[in-house]
Amino acid sequence: MRSPRVGTWHQAELAAPAVVFLIIFLAIPLLLLFAFGLVDIRAARVVPGSWTLEHYARILGDPFYYRIFLRTFWMGLGATIFCLLFGYPVAYLFTRVGPAARQVLLVLILAPLLTNAVVRTFGWMIILGGQKGLINALLLRVGLIDEPVRILYTMSGVLIGLTQIQLPFMILPVIAALEGQDRSLQEAAAGLGATWAQTFFHVVVPLSMPGVLTGSALVFVISYTNFAVPALLGGGSFAVIPTFIFEQISALLQWNNGAVLSSLLLGTAMVMLWLFNRASARLLRWTR
């Protein structure tokens, strides 16, 4: 048997390239990003020796940005809730069907990750867009609405888009959690007199919480910081932080604002993840 010390050394060697990569491409850029908010930047050049808290103070003192952060938060939360509502049944179905149906389901689940952004945007236009959009056509046909509703360039449209591309990140961890579940637990519940619904809500769902929480954290963070979907489906002037950062830098060349907002976006995302982890730990006390 090898001593743990030897093992650690070998692990360190294996991890070295990844660590170096992360330092160069993650840690350093993040520090720079944070620092860019603390100096004056003119014409993309840092003005030497211009350390200032003014940029942070300007943005943190402006209620306008609080509103946008709040909107961004709702966008992330909304996408997470929809992914959970739509993803959970799919994950559950996946664990209940035979191998052939699983293959088909898996392809369908992963499809959003495999299509490229251009095709997807085009698809969204067709489905969400206007009088001729599939959703409107369907709702009109069914008689749920009398006039076409606007979906494209609204929060609803953005949430639909986010939900669609983020679903795999919810479904896959939930599948993993459901697959790991001992089937005899469900039999035990039935044997003790639980109905299907009771078994589902008292046994299956609580036991899949590790997967649900992982999926939710993933979907929330990816949605909260997502740029492409709000930019494409939110239309012009759709105010969430990621599109705002883009406009600040690309349209207005306000590098300072961009850096401050990026740092705040990242910081708030990390704080929320941390809070979420603490809440999860309480919820998952029963796991080892």
Binding site: M125, G129, G130, Q131, K132, G133, R150, L152, Y153, A231, L232, G235, G236, S237, F238
Partner: peptide, 18 residues
């Protein structure tokens, strides 16, 4: 009103009768 991100997108909104 509907705000498009750019003129091309605005043109697409005409196409889809938005």
């Amino acid at each position: 009103f509907v705000i498009a991100p750019n003129p091309t997108a605005l043109a697409q909104l005409f196409e889809r009768e938005e």
